[in-house]
Design a protein around this nucleic acid. Structure first.
Lengths: 208, 208
DNA sequence: GTCTATAGTGCGATAGAC
DNA sequence: GTCTATCGCACTATAGAC
């Protein structure tokens, strides 16, 4: 045994294998959807045998669920960051919105994740709910608390306003990127954010 | 030769069959997604033979596209109606929003259509674009024109504001109904609409 | 009806860890 | 030597496109 192919073997650690399989599963599931991906292709994409895939995950459904839950954690951090909102509202809200839209737009993986998550929400309701609980709910709560903590914004219903804020951004992403509407209904994201902040801050002025 | 007008009967049967097949295709595609539905099941659901399906539609893809285009036309009319917006802004906007949310929420078929449309937007980009052009764009234009035609609302960017309006409603529908978030992040739709109109109308006041 | 693709299983062989 | 994880392959059975 004189020769060892570099980087090929030495993966005794089964955690690495799991990561490797999830990586391959991501490529396939995000591109082909649940029904459209075969476990054979997942195995090939992951660079392992099918038996190995089945030794780490019970079945196709189990693998899919593990993947979605991992992606949900990753994407939440990527798009809205981990640090709590703090500082001047006009600055903080514009910064958060700009950053979120930018991250979502430039991350093709995020588009694919939204497609799969929504597309399979009929087949996997409980999995979708896990994502709602783990991503959307915390996000809305953070926003709500921030809005409520700034009485100078004069927001009568912070919770509903948080929905408007998030909904505006996510729907924009869906129409422009996920649904390929960029060229059909073009609009600069700054313009949308300006209008959104305009509504929120002008609404505040009218009560001061 | 006297009793049956061959061409006529043939044609009527044909139209009838096409409708029948589309009906069966809808049941299957909306429930199982594109990759998940088999042409066998479509034929059974439609109550025709597989050969009949293939005599009216070139292949699975052609049938799917025909179905989506038909649904896009139907759903647009159902949810936002066909009559142009007219009247007192506070009334008209509240009425439109309430009606749209109500229609979307109570129509399980609409949920399924959104899932399929977004879920398959990676595989069928041009089909998705047809829907953007045929549903979202007209909707945004109608809203934009209405907002622009009411200077008392003092909206600086009607186009962007139309996006906020539509995005708020559609995203709400997605989180509550499509993604089964009703029980996790509950909210009455009236509360959301109130907050949305509050933003728009208070913003107007601040400049009067 | 035909032909292909796919989910999932079982087994013999291998390679490294201890 | 023994244990565990992996591989590759052959296999069954099913389903689906056309």
């Amino acid at each position: 045994m004189a020769h060892i192919k570099v980087g090929e073997v030495d993966r005794d650690n089964s955690v690495d294998k799991v990561e490797q399989i999830l990586q391959g599963a991501m490529q396939e599931f995000l591109k082909q959807g649940y029904a459209g991906t075969s476990m054979d292709r997942v195995a090939v994409a992951a660079g392992v045998s099918k038996a190995t895939v089945y030794s780490h995950f019970q079945d196709k459904e189990g693998l899919f669920k593990a993947l979605v839950e991992q992606l949900a954690r990753e994407k939440l951090d990527l798009i809205f960051g981990t640090e709590p909102l703090e500082g001047e509202p006009l600055i903080v809200l514009r910064q958060s919105a700009t950053n979120a839209l930018e991250q979502m737009t430039k991350d093709e993986e995020h588009c694919a994740f939204m497609r799969v998550l929504i597309g399979e929400s009929g087949r996997f309701p409980e999995l979708t709910q896990i994502c709602v609980r783990g991503m959307i709910k915390p996000l809305l709560e953070t926003l709500t608390q921030y809005l409520a903590a700034h009485p100078e914004l004069n927001i009568t219903d912070p919770e509903a306003t948080a929905r408007i804020f998030l909904g505006t951004l996510v729907h924009f992403h869906i129409t422009q990127d996920v649904m390929h509407g960029k060229d059909i209904i073009p609009m600069k994201s700054d313009r949308l954010i300006d209008a959104l902040l305009h509504l929120i801050f002008n609404s505040a002025e009218s009560h001061q």
